[in-house]
Nucleic acid binder design. Structure first.
Lengths: 157, 157
DNA sequence: ACCAATGTAACTAGAATGGTAGCATTGAGA
DNA sequence: TCTCAATGCTACCATTCTAGTTACATTGGT
């Protein structure tokens, strides 16, 4: 498999928040985000909680206007920051059970792979750093134009 | 989690085969490779079978000298090729259950992410393409120098 | 005080990974 | 032709991870 869909959900949530914040600057409940992403509110809250720890979103716990909103302008949040906030595990896994250390190759393969895996993950993150949530909003709106016939009850679906 | 350890095992196996082939050009059994990687021969055979389909290794099915060897020089096998041979799933997962298509963002987010994910995976593969199995052999040997005291019963240990 | 919303823990179903066992097949060598 | 070491393949299992669900305590405007 691959990078978990948690990352996709995080990006979707942030993109949705950025889009909704264009009209009014308020907090939005996890139910509404979950509705757009088509998942459970608890799952959304778990992920947004991680984004809040990374200071990418602000949270309002109680009261009538409780919910979430971006902590910064969408132009100032890169996909790389979101990745760091949501994904903790390294991109490449090493051996489940360590290699045989009595073997010449087995002794050196892990540090050798560690270097290469590190460079590769860095290249991936460099690419993610070149896109922002604002870019994602624009791109999503451009791609969403086609199927307009299904739009019915507003942007939050 | 991340890219499965299958990829690490594939690289380890190829590196080991490249190292062993420096002395004699013969086929090596999956048992010996499994011993260095510290896993089961069946798992090794599953992975080497994929590498054989991609024409990266040759296989000898029966007879006394049955086993595996590199199909090309180690200098001519890039880590990108190994990745393509072993990993079929995309690097990033999209929504488990598709997003809400009645939402403006939900309608456009998947194609938008598809573009970005494609570019990111391409950047990762570009980086992997800059390293060969021969590089891995050299790097492994350099890193393995330190713990020489454990070397006892030969390189396949 | 009310109550809408979050935070969090526990439990579950489903999928994926890697290990194990069994058996048919291959093919060089005696 | 027979032997036998090795692969190919299938089925099954334990473990782990993901995401969904439920439940309940907590927060904090009104």
């Amino acid at each position: 498999m691959a990078v978990v869909s948690r990352y996709t959900v995080a990006l979707h949530a942030l993109t949705w928040l950025a889009y909704m914040s264009r009209d009014k600057d308020e907090f939005f409940a996890s139910d509404r985000i979950a509705n757009s992403v088509n998942t459970s509110p608890v799952f959304i809250r778990r992920i947004l909680g991680q984004l809040a720890k990374a200071r990418l979103v602000s949270v309002q716990h109680g009261g009538t206007g409780a919910g979430w909103k971006l902590a910064r302008a969408a132009e100032a949040i890169t996909l790389h920051e979101v990745y760091e906030a949501v994904v903790q595990t390294p991109l490449f896994e090493l051996h489940h059970s360590g290699p045989n250390l009595r073997c010449q190759i087995g002794r050196g393969i892990q540090p050798a792979l560690g270097e290469i895996y590190g460079e590769t993950e860095a290249a991936m993150k460099r690419q993610l750093g070149s896109t922002t949530i604002a870019d994602l909003v624009d791109s999503s709106l451009a791609h969403g134009e086609d199927g307009k016939e299904q739009a019915s009850d507003g942007p939050q679906g």
